[in-house]
Structures are given as structure tokens and as C-alpha cells.
Amino acid sequence: MSAQGKPAEHLSYQATSYITVKRYFFGVLILSLIWGVLFLKGKPEWLQVAAESLHLTPVLKAQTDSFYEQRIDPIFEQYCAACHNDNKQKGKLRLDSFRQLNFSGKSETNLTVAENNLLLERMSLPAEHRLAMPPYGRERHSDTDLALIKLWLDKGGSGQLTEVDFPEAPPKAKKISFEPIDWQAIEKARAPLAQEVQHLQQEYGFSLQYQARTSADLILNSFVIGNRFNDQLLTEFASVKSKLVEVNLYQSAISDLSMRFLLTCQQLKELNIAGTKISAEGLIQLVSLASLEKVLVDKTLITPSVQAKFEQASITLVGVK
């Protein structure tokens, strides 16, 4: 016990070991350096940035017109980059640029040489294989894509060679793409007349339809109602006339009285009035409709003068027997 009544501490450590502090930390330093080198070996991007900063090496990137940028990068972009990008780096691999491809990822193998190319090997595996890339269930590249990558690798996996250097490469496929449908915009365009359209559809069934799922324009068709569709009934659709682009009144009971209605349909492009009571005089009035492109009428109504007037207005007049 100490003088203060506290139990005495054991003697502190004695430097009696053969391994001294200096020797030990020298060993630790060596091991840390080895560990650091191994760690840096797994970070080729850091080394590249350092070398570029010191101007020891040119900036690693592919030319804009290179075969890689034009033909190979789009393949990686379509099938690989979703998981191998800046944000995800699966397997520490990025395939979103030529520069990143050179850094190889976890495998630390050179992915720009053809021989034993891990990238090519994994992409060549059957789709169901555990190690296949892209993984099972993902959109998969074609054999042509794979052949193209192989061709590029066979010529050195360069970021400088252009398409001229690859005459054997199949021509670039034309890409057809569709604009994404903006459902909100369609709904917004339909909104002003949505209630009226709904009401008329409940009242007259299939007589009133939208031109397409993606359109706010309307088509009026008297076919379901037949010859009961008369001038009076047509006026029922007055609330939606601003959106009518096609009107089919074939064999309905409308007459020249409906001309007043039809002439106010400013968007009307196609009109079928064959088999109706509309006269040649009434028909002539239609040339004043700026948007009208095509009119189907009884053949008997088409005289040379009528034909000439419609031609003058750039409206196609089709005669129906």
C-alpha cells in the first residue's frame, strides 16, 4: 500500500525486449508501406490524376471521333453504365468513359487488351450464368455488340483510332427512338372540355371519341346513330366543336342547315358528308375552312367548277358512289 492508503501500482513496462520501440515501429512502417502500395494499386485513378497533375503523362481520354466514342461507348452506356457509373461503381468498375475503363475496377486486370479480357469473358457468358454481365434479367447486348468490342480490343483498345481504322466493322445501326409520352400534358390539354366530352359520350356512346390515347383532339362519327343523326342532333356537339378534327356524317340526315355548325369547326381536317342531303351550294362553302384537308362527298356533287374551287383551296375532294 502507498502512503496515501491507495494500493501500489505495479511497475510500469520495462524496455527489456530484444524488439525495441524503434525496431518495432520500423517494422510497422515497412508493413504499412507495403500495405499502402497494395492499397494504391487498387486506386489507379489516384495514380493517374497524380501523374497528370505532374505532367508526367497526357490526360487519359478518348478522342471525340474515335471508334471507342462512336461505337463502343454507346454499347457500354446502354448495357453497363447503369451499374458501373460514378454513383455506383459495382466491382469498383466504371464503364461510363474510356478513361474509367482504363482503371479496370476490382479485378485490376487490363480491360483494354484482347487477351484474357475479363470484360469480354463476363459479357460472353450465357445470360443465366452466375457471373454473366449484364446480370440475368437485365437488358443484354447482342452478338454484334460483342463482336464489335472484340474487334476494338483486337486493335489495341485504343481511344485514338477512328472508324476509318475499322473498315471490317458492320455499319452503325439506325436507332429509332420514340419521344416519351407526357401523360400529364395530355390530361392538361383534355381538361377544359373533359366534362363535356364525358357527358356527350354517356349520351351518344361511341359517336364521340378522342383521336388517340395521346391526343386531346376529337372525332365525331354518326355511324352508330345512322340516319337519325340530323341537323338538330349535330348542334348537340357544339360545346366540343373547337376540338373536332374529324367528322364522319356518312348517310346521316344532315342538310345544308348543318353548314353553319361545320364552318365553325376551326380545327376540322377531314369531313365525310357522302350520302347526306348536302347540296353543291352547301359543299362549296367548305372551302373557307382553313384547316380542312379532305372531304368525302357524293360523286354526283363534284362538278368541274366545284373541283376547281377545292383544288384552289388545297382541299382533297373524294367522290363516293
Binding site: 501500482e9 505495479h10 510500469s12 513496462y13 520501440v21
Partner: peptide, 9 residues
């Protein structure tokens, strides 16, 4: 103190 061997157990 540890590297100087002057720490208690």
C-alpha cells in the same frame, strides 16, 4: 508515455 515505457499497467 507508452512508447517511453512510463505507463502503468
Amino acid at each position: 508515455n507508452s512508447v517511453k515505457f512510463s505507463t502503468p499497467h
